[in-house]
């Protein structure tokens, strides 16, 4: 029996298996960046409020 050529499915499978966590980590990067910006802004406002 000949082994079928399923290489394209393999590529698609690993594109999904690496692509999904990559997108998830990218969402973390955006979330962290936005939170750090918020934190800096809030700390500045807090310092001004104290003055």
């Amino acid at each position: 029996m000949d082994t079928p050529d399923t290489f394209n499915y393999l590529l698609l499978g690993y594109a999904v298996l690496f692509g999904l966590p990559f997108l998830y980590l990218l969402s973390w990067w955006f979330r962290r960046r936005n939170l750090q910006r918020d934190l800096e802004l809030l700390q500045t406002l807090n310092d001004e409020q104290k003055k």
Partner: peptide, 16 residues
């Protein structure tokens, strides 16, 4: 090794 009946796509199995 490459599985004979399914071919390359069987390698998806490990991470699946």
């Amino acid at each position: 090794p490459t599985e004979v009946t399914m071919g390359a796509v069987q390698r998806v199995f490990y991470f699946h």
